[in-house]
Amino acid sequence: MIISVASGKGGTGKTTVATSLALALDDVQFLDCDVEEPNAGVFLASWLTGREDAVLLMPQVDETACNWCGRCQEVCAFNALAVIPPVDGGSGKVLRFDSLCHGCGACSRLCPRNAITDVPEKIGRVDWGIAHQDGSPDLDFVQGTLDIGQSLSPPVIQAVKRHLNQHKTVIIDAPPGTSCPVIEAIDGSDYCILVTEPTPFGLHDLALAVELLGKMEIPFGVVINRSNDRNQAVERFCAERNIPILFRIPYKREIAEAYSRGIPLVELSPEYRGKFRAVFESLCRTPGEAAQVRTEGES
């Protein structure tokens, strides 16, 4: 089973939920796909034993073989190439704009002169190993990191997901938002947990994420973090759409303090181990229709 943890808004507690969910279950592989800020390792003390480059295949044009036909530039959906034919006996040029190239390979495949080769350019890296937390089973841990100065995170996320082990329970920590990186991270998930907070911003961006998941046809439920007495708007939004609220994490100083020290929620409050397990077990029984998990004393 692949469970991704996402949110429209950043900073709602995705990593808090993803890491504690991972620590509460057995036989887990954790994929940190938030490659612009891969910080799940702060909660999960990890020993990284392997590393590889994440690359983008970019076109290299052999200008001696080019006849300046312009086909590569025509087929480039991102305007990453400009063909400058020679004038007045000078030499022609093909300019490549790296920040626009998505590495799709259309230009190299469609060049009538076979003058273009795909060359790997490093844009990030993938690290893997084991994460250990006293009192929890060890996790297989994989994280992606986008290089400074690079703008295209989906290929790094793909590189992380190539390590995905179908035989394990896979927990994916997704980046925030609703655009390409999120889609890349959560694509193929059996279930998505959306983490939100009871603020107008949390609700606004939750609505965007709900729309995205509807389009991707991934079943999902909501966790309300920093839950307090102002939950009504989020609760109403979910009730109107039959979106299950899996559980609520109360707005408490001790949780914030533990977070600030990198202590996972399940370590601070072991009762969350049971809550996360109950969510997981209900997913296993009825995928797509996670029952709400309620415990005493929830706000």
Binding site: G70, Q73, F78, N79, A80, A82, V83, I84, P85, F97, L100
Partner: peptide
């Protein structure tokens, strides 16, 4: 995206000798 690149390229192909504009991006 890359609109400036595409337009510049079209102008090259049309054989213009100079461009007058307001501002032009680096690409």
């Amino acid at each position: 995206g890359g609109v400036g690149i595409q337009l510049a390229q079209n102008l090259v192909r049309r054989g213009v000798k100079a461009v007058i504009t307001g501002r032009v991006g680096p690409n």
